[in-house]
Every structure is written in C-alpha cells, then in structure tokens.
C-alpha cells in the first residue's frame, strides 16, 4: 500500500508532470486564460490518462514494440473522442470554449509519456493510480496558472468579477499582458521557482 501511495503523491509534488518532467506544456499554456476551462480540461485529462494507462497496461504483453506508438495513439484517440462527445452533450458551452484543445489531448505528451514510461511495464492497478496521480499533478498546475492569469488578466474568477469596483475607480487596471501566451510561460517559470525554493533536492546542478 505504501508503494501505491507514493505512486499517487509523488507526481503531485516532486515528480510533477508539468514542473519537473516538463510534459504537457502546450495545452497548459493555451487554455489557462480562464479557470473554468482549466478545470474542465484537467478532468478530461484525468479521464483519458487513467483509462489509457489501464488499457495499455492490460495489453502490454500483446503489443509488438515496433507498432506500440500507433496502438497507443489509437487508444488515446478513441478515449478523446468519448470525452469530446460527453462534453458536447452535457456542458456544451464549455466544450465550445475549449474547441480544438479537447482534440489536442491526443497530442498531449503527458499521456504518451506515462504510457511509454509506466503503463508498458506495470500491472493495471499501479497503472491506474499512476494515471490518476499524474493527471492530478497536471491539473493542480493548470488550476494555479489559470487562477493567477484570470485574476490578474481579467479581474474575474470562474467568470465572476472579484476585483472591487472601487479599485478600478482608483486607477487599477487589468493587466492585458497576462492574457497573452508568453505570460503563461513566465507564470509557470515562477511556479517552478517557488516549488524548487521549497524542495531543495529538485534544484539542478549547473
């Protein structure tokens, strides 16, 4: 049980897929302008990653290694189509907002990375836990980045205005730069800085 516990907690902090393994950055930059989109995206990735990990883990002894990439992509693509259809059916407005980025989960390297690095060599239960852990670590960073970008960039959270009117009257202005993609990179950079200042063993040698 201790080992499984570690499989879940490690990816959230010291093996975080975004800040330590540097996987899945593309989507993290594009959909973190608003908090709501980031939460829906995190849940979609959680679903796809957990199931893809289990399926590949079950099939791991039957996949010839030469064609493993294609097999993995077919599994991921089918799961993403399911997510896309469910989002369209139940939360149409969010699905419209995410548009192409649901499709781009297929090319989210965090999923492929976990399949290659973990699911191909482990049993289904640890693979499931690993998938959930990594997706949670990913979602956590997404939500933190989106929180700051939405708060500073448009003065809202989850679409509701949170910056008091008085501030604006006083001369406060939303920082339009936060909405542009380069600031997403810099925000992630600052998160990495904060994390490594706290967890010393992650600091890289020169």
């Amino acid at each position: 049980m201790g080992k499984n516990n570690k499989l879940f907690t490690n990816p959230i902090n010291i093996e975080n897929p975004v800040t330590v393994q540097i996987l899945g950055i593309c989507a993290a930059l594009a959909i973190t302008v608003q908090l709501k989109a980031a939460v829906v995206m995190s849940l979609s990735v959680l679903f796809v990653l957990a199931f893809a990990n289990v399926i590949i883990s079950l099939l791991r002894n039957t996949i010839p290694s030469r064609i493993r990439i294609i097999v993995q992509l077919v599994v991921i693509a089918s799961l993403v189509i399911i997510v896309d259809q469910v989002l369209k059916a139940y939360v149409y407005s969010v699905s419209k907002q995410l548009s192409v980025f649901v499709g781009l989960i297929i090319t989210n390297c965090i999923i492929m990375g976990r399949l290659e690095a973990f699911a191909l060599g482990n049993k289904p239960i640890p693979a499931l836990i690993d998938g959930i852990g990594n997706a949670s670590g990913y979602g956590l960073i997404l939500i933190i980045v989106a929180f700051f970008r939405e708060l500073l960039g448009s003065g809202t959270l989850w679409g509701f205005p949170v910056v008091p009117k008085a501030f604006y009257n006083f001369g406060y202005a939303d920082n339009g730069l936060m909405i542009l993609p380069p600031m997403a990179l810099i925000t992630v950079g600052v998160i990495i800085w904060v994390q490594r200042a706290n967890v010393k063993e992650l600091i890289e040698e020169k």
Partner: peptide, 11 residues
C-alpha cells in the same frame, strides 16, 4: 539556484 535549468528556460 531554484530557477536553474527548467525555470529560467520557461522565462
């Protein structure tokens, strides 16, 4: 030190 490697690359 904490910014070395990946952090500074992002920025």
């Amino acid at each position: 030190a904490p910014l070395r490697g990946v952090g500074i690359t992002f920025i």
